[in-house]
Structure formats: structure tokens, C-alpha cells
Computed example of a mutant assay.
Amino acid sequence: MTEAAAESGAGTARRRFIAPPREQVDAACFQHPLFGEFAAWHALMTADDWPDIETLNACMSLPGRCFVAQDAALLEDGEHYEIRIQQGRIATRLQNWHDLFNAMVWARYPAIKHAFNAQQCRHIAVTGPTVRNRAQQALTQFDETGVIVRVRDIALVDAWDTHDWSTLFQAHAARWRNGDIAVAGVIGHALMEQMLVPGRLLVGKCLVVQGDDDSACIARVAEAIMAGEVLAAPAELRPLPLAGVPGWHPQQDADFYAQADYFRPLREGRVYPRPLR
């Protein structure tokens, strides 16, 4: 059983994930629903060669911002990564899966990435560039491993509140399929990077919104982040074993859902916030 480093959270001692070389990645992995909202950039993921900075900027126009190569010359300015973004420069490592996926998330969900940056810069202005408070940890966790889940009926999160995974995924399977509950958006580029390795069982860290429209729910999350309504601490984020989502894993029988090392029980005292409205 291999679980995404996403579940460990920031500041742990788990070994850093190293993505496979481009030539070793099976392009079939990009057909997974995790990549569903990023089809416009399928060629950037599957081409034989890595895209350069000029290609990224041509494919992903971001008003007021552009991607710049993170090289020794750039780093000489000594600026914090987030401060450069505030200035309009998104430092991007070349030939790097993590940063390619980060660029794709910028292009797909610019309002959320802008909100991340605005909040990080606000905290840096107070605590300085070397201290990270709980809110910054939460922002980073959602940036790296975040998933937005939309629910029509708020009662659907009751099973999630107690980590009753069999009810959430099996008993409510039809409701996942008809859109009563759905993954509205994948924000975490670290999740995308980990999906490059077959067999990894990933855990997203979620914000939940009650609503009917995916785009409106994503916009609500961006608004809430910008306003500081959410992500004051990592404990606000709900873990979601993504392989349990109906249709997201080839084996979803009773034995699969019985794996307690992946579908983990609720920790004593853990309480999640109610969905955004």
C-alpha cells in the first residue's frame, strides 16, 4: 500500500517524492479523472520534449503574470517565491513535472492561485519570509494537495464527518454518478505529480461547497480564500481517499474499501467545518 505524501501534511519527515523521468511515464495515466479539467494542455504532458518557458506563456496567458525560468540568475535577487509572484513572475523549474502541473493549475484556476498568493504575501508581511504560521501551512497543503468537492445536499457530508467511507462511497455511489456530490476541481499539483506512478493511492485535502454548479463553487472557494474565511489551520481540510470516488479506481469492491490503512478511521476529537454556501 502506497499512500500519497499529501496525507502526511507539511513539516513531516516522510521521504520526498521523486517523479519518474518523462520518458518513463505512461501517457495513459493522463486519462484519469484527476486530469479531467486539464485536457487543454494534454500535449504539454504527452509530447516527447518538455515545453520551454516561451511555450508555457504562449499556451497559458495570465493577465498581469508570466512564467519565468527558475535559474541561478533569477534566484540571485533573494526574493521570496510568493513575493516574485506578487510582482508578476511565477518562478518555474524547467523539465520538472511538479512545476508543469503548477503552471496548468494557474491556467485553469487563476482566481484560486491569485488568492493563495495574496494570502501568503499578507502573512509574509507580518511574520517575515522565514516563519510559517498555521494559516500558511493550510494554504500550502491546499495548494499542493487540494480538491474542491461540491454537494447539492449538505446531508451527504454526514458520513464523511465520521469517516464512514463505505456509506460515503458505496451506499452513495449513485449520488456520485448523478452529480449530487462531485469533485468540482483538482487544485493540488502534487496530487497530479504522484498520479504519474501507477498504483499510488492518493489522498486529497478538501474544501466542500454546497451548490449545483462546479464553476460557481470554485469561484466561492477563491472568494473565501481571498477573504480569509477558510484555511486558518490545516485541520480545516477534510481528507478524501480519492481512489474511493466511484470510477476513480479499477477495484472498488468491499475488500478494497475495507483497507483501513488507506480508508482511515476518524481521529478522536477531529471535527470538520461545515461546507461553504
Rank of each mutant, 00 (worst) to 15 (best):
S61L: 12
I225Q: 06
L156T: 01
I181V: 14
F17Y: 15
A233F: 01
M60Y: 02
A69G: 05
T2G: 00
T2S: 10
L207E: 03
Y109Q: 14
T2H: 11
V197L: 09
M104A: 04
T130S: 07
H42E: 02
W176Q: 04
E54V: 09
G247D: 13
Y262G: 02
D180M: 13
P21E: 12
Q259G: 00
A243F: 05
A73G: 00
V183R: 06
I85C: 10
M1F: 08
G269R: 03
N133K: 01
Y272F: 15
V157R: 11
D261V: 12
K205H: 13
L207H: 03
H172S: 08
A111H: 08
P63I: 05
W50C: 10
L44R: 00
K205L: 15
A171D: 14
R200H: 11
L240Y: 06
N178I: 10
H123G: 00
D99G: 05
I112N: 05
V126F: 00
Q210C: 10
I85F: 01
Q31T: 14
H189N: 05
A72G: 03
A182G: 07
A115G: 05
V105H: 01
T167H: 13
I218K: 08
A118G: 02
A190H: 11
I90A: 03
S61C: 12
I154D: 10
E3C: 05
I83G: 00
D180I: 07
A216C: 09
L242N: 05
V147A: 03
D99L: 10
A138I: 09
D77P: 00
C121A: 13
I53V: 15
R264T: 08
R132P: 00
L242Q: 09
G199Y: 10
L231I: 11
D213K: 06
L100V: 07
G64E: 12
A233H: 15
R177Q: 13
R152I: 11
